[in-house]
Simulated assay, not measured.
Amino acid sequence: MKQGFSPRALRISEQIQRELAQMLALEVKDPRVKGVTITQVEVTADLSHAMVRYVCHAGYAGQADADAGFRSVNGFLRHGIAERLSIFKAPQLRFEYDKTFEEGTRLSALIDQARADDARVIAPDSPGAIPGAPEADR
């Protein structure tokens, strides 16, 4: 989804993110979306569609429940956005799980594992050790 780069589209994206977070915390009764944090909202240039990315406190395991919860409360949230932003037609909301945090954690663990493997293969006293390199970087 291509995000509009107009100042209005960016401002609407930020407002939608704030309002959705507040509605989820205070007004939505569906327990499937209670442990959800809105990470990003992208609005198209014509303000007709909004991609809402979220993470669950339960992690990736809670995605299926959260998706079902968002399908259930989508109309309520869209109506609330229209009222709070005083716009005639609220954008269609599409919710997508944000995998960025899990991917970052996974890549960080892979890097740590690779560095540990390198440290075991190249011992500090071995002939293949890098001269002048600190112990942690070998």
Rank of each mutant, 00 (worst) to 15 (best):
M1T: 11
M1W: 08
Q3R: 13
G4P: 08
F5I: 11
R8A: 12
A9P: 07
L10P: 00
L10I: 09
R11F: 07
I12T: 12
E14Q: 14
Q15E: 14
Q15P: 04
R18F: 05
E19I: 15
L20E: 06
A21R: 09
A25D: 15
L26T: 12
L26M: 11
L26F: 12
E27F: 00
E27I: 01
V28G: 00
V28M: 01
V28N: 03
K29Y: 01
K29T: 10
D30F: 06
P31Q: 05
P31H: 04
P31S: 07
R32S: 05
V33A: 02
K34H: 12
G35F: 11
G35Y: 03
V36Q: 04
V36T: 13
I38L: 09
T39H: 06
T39F: 03
T39E: 06
Q40W: 01
V41K: 04
V41F: 02
E42A: 12
E42M: 11
T44P: 02
D46T: 08
D46C: 10
S48L: 08
S48H: 09
H49C: 04
A50Q: 00
V52G: 03
V55Y: 01
C56V: 08
C56P: 01
Y60R: 13
A61S: 15
G62K: 05
G62L: 07
Q63N: 12
Q63L: 04
A64N: 13
A66P: 03
D67S: 10
D67G: 02
A68K: 14
A68W: 01
A68S: 14
G69P: 01
G69N: 02
F70V: 08
R71H: 13
R71E: 15
S72D: 13
S72V: 06
S72E: 14
N74K: 14
G75L: 02
G75P: 00
L77P: 05
L77V: 07
L77S: 05
R78Y: 03
R78P: 01
H79S: 15
I81T: 03
A82P: 02
E83A: 11
E83I: 06
R84M: 05
L85C: 05
L85Y: 04
L85T: 02
S86C: 09
I87N: 03
I87R: 01
I87T: 03
F88K: 15
P91R: 07
Q92L: 13
Q92K: 13
L93Y: 06
L93S: 07
L93E: 05
L93F: 06
R94H: 14
E96A: 11
E96M: 11
Y97A: 07
D98P: 03
T100Q: 09
T100C: 02
F101G: 10
F101S: 13
E102S: 10
G104K: 07
T105W: 09
L107T: 09
L110R: 12
L110N: 12
I111L: 14
I111F: 11
I111P: 02
Q113M: 09
R115G: 00
D118A: 14
R120N: 13
R120M: 09
V121N: 12
V121W: 10
P124C: 02
P124R: 05
P124V: 01
S126F: 00
G128H: 13
P131Q: 00
G132Q: 07
P134V: 10
P134L: 10
P134H: 12
A136F: 08
A136W: 10
R138N: 07
R138V: 00
